[in-house]
Design a binder for these strands. Structure first.
Lengths: 143, 143
DNA sequence: TTGCATCTAATAACTCTTCTAATTAGAACT
DNA sequence: AGTTCTAATTAGAAGAGTTATTAGATGCAA
């Protein structure tokens, strides 16, 4: 993934390397804030704006994908291949979900798209309660 | 829908009636800001907080559904039945999409959910470019 | 190494949403 | 109808999240 930085015309700066590294091995889809806080110890001078700039640059280069899975902070996903997400309504945790046949080849399922609408990607989100939250309070309202 | 206000233990105030009316016949999934601006002429004294309070109350009562379809403002959907959404990557327009078998009965498709995760709802989002935007600039980048 | 374009840091500004305190207004109960 | 209780509204400020601006530093190619 670092290699593709250059391919996209992006310079390989220490800040970008750190952000890419932190994101690449992270399955929790961190927010910009979370990335910033995790990287601050090792890069104390890094600015908050740099995190956003870098994430924006990576997203434009299609190396990561921003996800609006719930209101509030945008989450960033190092996996740009088609897949679904399980989102906990209580704690907001996000987990990847393998979804077969979720590519652009399945608009038959959602037939009546608006006239002239061209589909580029199909996302699927499973909303519910994760095991940890259910264990804490099994009887709570769904949300 | 107005009738269900009382069932939910919510008082029938003029502000709530206006918001419910504006939302009920609107297929564009307006944001809180949009609702506020549309209602201001007829209810000049209404506060911004009231819009949020009311939308939150309606959402808790399951009369509307908040949707995080793209980064930025939350959109509110008067249709709480299971259905999908077509979202234009350029202009942000949202349209409803009928989706068969999109209820809670289809987690087989997205099999490997996290252990202990209970699904309450499945959402499907079709991302792409709407006809109007494609007409304006057919050659532009997908996003 | 020099020059230029890009990138970063710092900060301000902006958008969206929530909170607080005081007032007002529904709904229920005489 | 009048009273009371509680919830809802208002206005403003505050908070979170994001984007824009600008000056200065840095990487990269010639």
């Amino acid at each position: 993934m670092l290699a593709r930085l250059g391919d996209a015309g992006l310079k390989r700066t220490p800040q970008r390397v750190a952000i890419v590294r932190e994101l690449a091995g992270d399955l929790t889809h961190p927010t910009a804030q979370e990335l910033f806080e995790r990287l601050r110890p090792s890069m104390p001078t890094m600015s908050f704006a740099t995190v956003y700039n870098t994430l924006d640059a990576l997203a434009r280069a299609r190396l990561i994908a921003p996800r609006a899975l719930s209101p509030g902070a945008t989450r960033f996903d190092p996996n740009v291949r088609p897949h679904g997400h399980a989102v906990c309504d209580r704690c907001g945790a996000v987990a990847d979900v393998a979804v077969q046949a979720d590519g652009e080849a399945t608009p038959e399922l959602g037939s009546d798209l608006p006239r002239g609408f061209t589909v580029h990607a199909v996302e699927r989100v499973f909303r519910g309660v994760c095991g940890a939250c259910a264990a804490v309070d099994p009887g709570a309202r769904p949300s």
